[in-house]
Design a protein around this nucleic acid. Structure first.
Length: 480
RNA sequence: GGGGGCGUAGUCUAGCUUGGCUAGGAUGGAGGCCUUGGGAGCCUCAGACCCGGGUUCAAAUCCCGGCGCCCCCA
């Protein structure tokens, strides 16, 4: 039990938290052994996966008119505190620079916890006219938040390494409302491509982002029963614009405040992929984001090494014309060892070529998701792989959907709420009153994740607490 | 926010209660022989008591502080 081989993991269903930590290290995603709490080193393989994930995101942003920018990571206190709600929301988590060398600074400088303040200060000089709007920009940068709860690699960190934050600027509140819908839509497409199931909820008013009018979250649930926020889409209205003097001149010649939104995701996106698709042999990566789509493992045979290696090289040239592919020629590792190694890294397809494949001009195709082998002739290989990747996506999506459904439950009365609350996301009809939500929090020990606005209108038996008309579907659970 | 537990090679761990031989094993690493269709075996080598202070003839072990990690409850 305690003595584990290099590619052996704690069982996911027995201890998810340990499984997760082990898989991050053994699949070469992160090195957790960094001397500062809450910060982690990204290894080449993990970084490559993140780059692929972010390029999915960038494609979606590009298609919807968002442009990439870079704003510095340091912001003066005076800028940060122009909107008091904002600074108040982050006051316990900001890293402050107070000194440079031996000299104490006159004004404290902060490392960005997020970039609204940093950007708006500058944007007030960019935006002059209605014709400058809408403006949609984003950046992918580290962000710093001193998490006060226990840190967890990739899930609760003090340096968000891949913080994709988009910020948009609009003439009217209505346009900002539309932008929020677009943001939610982008995130839905994004997580659909990552094969991660989610719910979209509106955050209760008492829990919205500091300075926001309202915001939507995409939320999933990890195998330990804890809810994970995957992304947030925020409408600030003109609240921030007033604090940062973001005004434009409208067609009628009058000065008006800009309406702004922002939406962000992070490496939690990868965390959710790993947690939901991974198994007891390691990662199972969706083909779309796997840095290596196909790995070729030659199976040596005494006196036949040359033929096998030549054939493996031939298969490699064939496959690498269409897919990123790796030929594993390491001589000191036996085939069985290599199998475990590549399974840990979650490579979707492994091709095995040995004596028998050479003789019949075929390839043994192994798929990681359901761990099955098929033998395919060399000519049929490419079309076979094309279908295989498609089928793999479908099966993984379906499996994740079934998993998600097993982790959520809908109840209509307090008794079933109490009895069905073990490690699941619980949904129930809710009238919209804070008091009723707090009552449920008190009864269950869960916290409110959000609600689906008006999704139950005229369909529910009434609020689970007060019995009044309940138009909303509320979601509660334990949370990261 | 409150409580509990833990820290020994790259990784996992034995030893700690009751201080005492060269800190033991596995896995991983390097070199070699032999092998290769699901983690082979054998030989050789290198590798550790989180940091600081205290108690003691003697500290991985006991005490204090720091740092770090895990779990539970709010």
């Amino acid at each position: 039990m305690s003595e584990k081989k290099a590619f052996e993991l704690t069982k996911k269903e027995e201890d998810f938290s340990r499984w997760f930590d082990e898989v991050l290290f053994k699949a070469s995603i992160l090195d957790e052994r960094y001397p500062v709490k809450g910060l982690y080193v990204w290894l080449p393989y993990g970084y490559a996966i993140m780059e692929n994930i972010m390029s999915v995101m960038e494609r979606l942003l590009r298609e919807t008119g968002h442009k990439r920018v870079y704003f510095p990571s340091i912001v003066p206190e005076s800028t940060l505190s122009r909107e008091f709600r904002f600074i108040k929301g982050f006051e316990n988590t900001i890293y402050w620079i107070t000194q440079v060398g031996l000299r104490k600074l006159d004004e404290r400088l902060a490392l960005r916890p997020t970039s609204e303040a940093i950007m708006y200060e500058v944007l007030s000089r960019w935006i002059k006219s209605y014709s400058d709007l809408p403006l949609r920009i984003y950046q992918i940068v580290p962000a710093y938040r001193y998490e006060t709860k226990a840190t967890r690699p990739m899930l609760r960190v003090r340096e968000i390494t891949f913080f994709k934050e988009a910020h948009t600027f609009h003439v009217t509140f209505e346009e900002a409302v539309e932008q929020v819908k677009l943001g939610v839509d982008i995130y839905k497409k994004f997580y659909d491509e990552l094969l991660v199931p989610y719910i979209v909820v509106k955050t209760p008013p008492w829990d919205t982002f500091p300075g926001a009018r309202y915001n939507y979250d995409l939320v999933t649930i990890l195998p330990d029963g804890k809810a994970l926020e995957l992304g947030s889409v925020i409408n600030f209205g003109d609240l921030f614009a007033k604090a940062y003097d973001l005004q434009y001149t409208d067609r009628d010649g009058k000065k008006k405040y800009v309406h702004t939104t922002s939406f962000g995701v992070s490496e939690r996106s990868l965390a959710s992929v790993i947690a939901i698709h991974g198994d007891n042999r390691g990662l199972v990566l969706p083909p779309k984001i796997s840095p290596i789509k196909v790995v070729i493992v030659p199976i040596p045979f005494k006196g036949f090494e040359k033929e096998i290696n030549n054939y493996a090289s031939k298969v490699y040239s064939l496959v690498s014309s269409s897919y990123t592919c790796e030929l594993d020629l390491i001589e000191d590792e036996k085939p069985g060892y290599k199998f475990y190694k590549w399974e840990m890294k979650g490579v979707p397809v492994r091709l095995e070529v040995g004596k028998s494949e050479v003789e019949e001009g075929s390839v043994t195709v192994f798929r990681r998701d359901i761990m099955e082998r098929t033998r395919v002739s060399e000519e049929e290989l490419l079309p076979y792989l094309e279908d295989l990747f498609e089928d793999m996506e479908e099966k993984m999506r379906e499996k994740a959907r079934r998993y998600f459904e097993s982790m959520i439950v809908y109840v209509e009365d307090v008794e079933s709420l109490k009895s069905s609350m073990q490690n699941k996301l619980v949904s129930f009809p809710w009238c919209g009153e804070k008091g009723c939500a707090l009552k449920v929090e008190e009864l269950t020990g869960y916290s409110m994740i959000g609600y689906e606005e008006d999704s139950l209108s005229g369909k529910s038996k009434g609020c689970i607490v007060c019995g009044k008309e309940a138009p909303h579907l509320a979601w509660m659970g334990r949370s990261y």
